[in-house]
Design a protein around this nucleic acid. Sequence first.
DNA 1: TGAAATGTTGGGGCG
DNA 2: ACGCCCCAACATTTC
Length: 467
Amino acid sequence: MSQHIIVWFRQDLRLNDNPALQSALNGKNAVIPVFIDDNDCGRQPGIMGRWWRDKSLAQLNDALKSCGSRLIFRKGRAQDVLPTLAKQVGATAVYWNRQYEADIVARDTAIKSKLKDSGIEAESFNGSLLFEPWEVTSKSTGGPFKVFTPFWRACCALGLKRGLWNVPDKITAPAQWPQSDALPATAPLDHMDSLNIWQPGEDGARDALALFLSENISGYAERRNLPAEPATSRLSPHLRWGEISPARIVAETEAANIKTDDGTKFLSELGWREFSYQLLYHNPELAETCLQNKFEAFPWRNDADAFEAWKRGETGYPIVDAGMRELRRTGYMHNRVRMIAASFLIKHLLIDWREGEKWFWECLVDADPANNSASWQWVAGCGADAAPYFRIFNPMLQGPKFDADGIYTKTYVPELNALSGKTLYAPWTAKSDMLDSVAISLGDTYPNPIVNHEAARARALESFKSL
DNA sequence: TGAAATGTTGGGGCG
DNA sequence: ACGCCCCAACATTTC
């Protein structure tokens, strides 16, 4: 007998390889796809996260339409919307894919029992991770891993391959569609001039993976560190909204016969994502509380001017500024540069990593509740398997090392186009008549460094020693 | 998924 | 030929 089943989309904005959707499709069921904009629970997406999400929702709606279905969009508290909607459409079941933030887990658990109490089946699935956060445990402690390498080794030993589902041909519509609010408008963001590099949605995710595997993964193990090279997958925003499943990434990477070093290195980046979600699940306060408690006593500086300069990309250190400007222009920053920019805020400026985390949360199209927090804690040294406190990136060395010819840096800091080599990354060391001759005036056309590297490094080591 | 300081080695210039 | 110094190049340790 045919049933009406609600599929509740959340951070799984795709039709392919979607376990909740696939389970609903069994038999001749009518499916009601719904997305609920619930701003009462969970960390709300930042400006760029919302921009991406709204674009992605429009794509999801289009994809559903080409299967004979459509997306029902509702604003409100999920625990109110879902039971009401279920009753209204006569649903016998509600399916969704799991999320892992503590308040969302609690809400979903409550919804599940509320639905079951009214005789409606409710079931959740794993649609966004290779392993559930409670699934991979250390043999020695019995608990979750605290170090990445043994964690990922254990994952690989369990096996990364998963079964996959393709996009269904047809999704049976209910006899009558329930009312939907209008999908959110996807207004352009006036201060962003480079958002056309992105293609939010399932098709964009598939294209990004295909391009990466066919053209750009060669030499990944090394080239991934070079921000001027198109050597990273740029899948992070797609993964964040579940437009592609990690299982599909694993399957297609393995099928592409990538050279071992490059393939395993790439898949290990998925491993960091798994590791971050494990950390988030077992540490609900990941965005707010240092995993290593002793760091809570750290004497962070309040320095509004320095923080503003960092956000605007006007620290006077070109590789840092390039990264911060890439972030504001494109909603993205290359991973190598994220580490440099984050290290600069934390170690050179001694500003609380949580301030940086919040700024990235607003600005990144891939801002992810697990990855963003875990990575900031990693750089700060207060996280799991973190960089030691004395690891302080030198922006004058990182530049020449990873952007030797300055192509990346000059893309975002064009006022330094005339400089090259080490001078590009330390303009104040250039002879003043040389700067004059190319019309660079420090403090005018480009900022003077807001801190002295050697002094800032010494200050950071001194402060961190107090721990 | 660092950088800087310190230690070691070996070749070349030179008296 | 030899010792001495200098210093680049590399290795180790320290932060």
